[in-house]
């Protein structure tokens, strides 16, 4: 237990901050994912064929390709792409993208592919009558989507959003390959310097279990809250 002491003698404080980092990346990623999902779900639901195709392409690629490969794409390709754009604007220097941003974006894009399907499914499971009634009442499309469809959709999507969150949380462990110091990376460092990998990786597993347990409790509360009246 001395290994987990808080302060200079143990790894307690380091692992604590690494856990916060995991939570931060996962939160950033899931919100990036929601943003993308809002766009691509509307593509998939649109009547325009090209948009359907773009939406399907996005979800097929990022749900079918391993997360690690996507992370490598952004890790090795990210700064190249940014520098390419910067060169167009006349900046020639070297730009390095922060590991946090690389991680949040790559996991966010993957998480977004799952969220897209969740959002699409939820909108489709809303009773057609709701759409028809909104139209009859003379709401403009934008208004009734924001005021009527999306609030109902979010309630229906909540159990699946909880699943996507669990996937996203676990996927953040893969960002450790880029050197971002989250739970996995910190355990790797600690295991290397103390020569006790079994202890630190098992402790990492406990931390992840704790996080998934906590988020499950939170989502159960939310589900209860939003299904009152049903």
């Amino acid at each position: 237990m001395g290994l987990l002491a808080y302060g200079d003698t143990g790894w307690g404080d380091e692992l604590f901050f690494a856990t916060l980092m995991t939570i931060a990346v996962a939160t950033a990623a899931i919100f990036i994912g929601f943003l993308l999902a809002a766009i691509f779900a509307s593509f998939k639901l649109s009547k325009i064929k090209v948009l359907n195709l773009i939406g399907s392409f996005y979800t097929t690629v990022f749900r079918g390709v391993p997360e690690l490969l996507v992370i490598y794409l952004f890790f090795f390709g990210g700064s190249g792409a940014v520098m390419y754009v910067a060169r167009i604007f006349g900046y020639d220097g070297y730009i390095e993208i922060n590991a946090f941003i690389t991680g949040a974006i790559s996991i966010g894009i993957i998480s977004g592919a799952y969220s897209t399907e969740v959002f699409r499914g939820a909108v489709q499971s809303i009773d057609r009558g709701q759409f028809e009634a909104s139209e009859v009442l003379g709401f403009r499309k934008k208004i009734y989507y924001y005021k009527i469809i999306i609030p109902q959709m979010l309630r229906l999507a909540l159990p699946n959003i909880s699943n996507v969150w669990q996937i996203t949380l676990k996927d953040t462990s893969l960002i450790s390959v880029t050197g971002l110091v989250e739970i996995m990376r910190m355990s790797y460092i600690a295991a290397g310097s103390t020569r006790d990998p079994l202890f630190f990786y098992s402790f990492a597993a406990v931390l992840y279990l704790f996080l998934t347990f906590l988020s499950m409790q939170l989502f159960n509360k939310l589900e209860k809250h939003y299904s009152r009246g049903y």
């Binding site: 669990q166 079994l198 990492a204 597993a205 992840y208």
Partner: peptide, 15 residues
């Protein structure tokens, strides 16, 4: 409830 990466590391490096 835990990432696959942790499981591989426990088995390969830990055990």
């Amino acid at each position: 409830g835990t990432p696959l990466l942790v499981q591989i590391f426990i088995i390969y490096f830990g055990l």
